[in-house]
Write a protein that binds this DNA or RNA. Structure first.
Length: 252
DNA sequence: TCATTAATCGCAC
DNA sequence: GTGCGATTAATGA
């Protein structure tokens, strides 16, 4: 479908972009920058970005590192997490192409409170803080879209508090599955992303073992099917029903 | 292929 | 519900 230009850039020329990643040809129509490209007056803004690639498993935002800008995912998938006590990581959210990473540190914060790791080979667009600030001040539509994004994120984060504190493990795992399904969709009956049981656990706020137990229970009930890392949802409606009685299901 | 890593299950707490 | 450890399956060098 989209055979993007994936040239390997030598480290020496990494700063100079030798493949076309300009916003003009970008296919992420949900990207806030792409969507507002027509409204953005300063043409320099969209071209004044850097592009970096990271391999699967590579961390590109370190917790505590100073914030100098904001990442957009041009291609790939990413998990955002916060490290808790005894090194346990809590996955805050997942993100796919077109989405923003590191936005919480934007504005006043000096340092990132989160870390981000690529779940597969990922290409990122990086906008400097100053350039973005400029663009936001000069483009109401862009600023408005950003505000909507922030509001949405806040809503999701608030409902997640309830999720973790009031739902049973089974419900939390189901909710996580639905979230992944909403975000990444499925391909040939399987969720279009490969996550370890550990990662499901870190998102649902439980342990790997619990996820495995819930998965096998769901498999027995024919609600999902799982082959290794490939998870398929067989009956999404039944899954939704299980958690809808708790009224915690929110589209996010 | 073999070695490493992840998934699963059983069991004690 | 949680955590540990052994077994088995999957992955990758």
């Amino acid at each position: 479908m989209h055979t993007n230009i994936v040239h390997t850039v030598s480290t020496a020329t990494r700063k100079r972009i030798s493949f076309d990643v300009s916003c003009r040809v970008c296919e992420n129509h949900s990207c806030l920058v792409k969507k507002n490209l027509g409204n953005i007056e300063s043409k320099e803004f969209a071209s004044n970005k850097s592009n970096l690639r990271c391999k699967k498993g590579q961390q590109f935002i370190m917790e505590g590192a100073p914030v100098n800008g904001l990442f957009f995912i041009q291609k790939g998938k990413v998990k955002v997490f916060r490290t808790g006590i005894n090194g346990r990581e809590q996955i805050v959210r997942f993100a796919k192409a077109g989405e923003i990473i590191g936005h919480r540190g934007f504005g006043t914060a000096e340092c990132y409170s989160i870390g981000a790791i690529a779940l597969e080979d990922t290409s990122l667009c990086y906008f400097s803080k100053d350039g973005l600030q400029d663009a936001l001040l000069n483009n109401p539509k862009l600023a408005y879209d950003f505000m909507l994004f922030y509001a949405n994120e806040l809503n999701r984060s608030e409902s997640k508090v309830k999720l973790i504190s009031q739902m049973t493990v089974r419900e939390r795992v189901i909710d996580s599955l639905l979230y992944i399904h909403r975000k990444f969709g499925s391909n040939k009956g399987f969720l279009d992303i490969s996550l370890s049981r550990r990662e499901y656990a870190d998102y649902a706020g439980t342990t790997e073992e619990q996820v495995i137990r819930v998965f096998s229970a769901l498999k027995k009930d024919n609600l999902i099917n799982a082959k290794g890392k490939k998870i398929g949802i067989t009956d999404i409606q039944l899954l939704k029903n299980e958690i809808s009685e708790h009224n915690f299901y929110l589209d996010s």
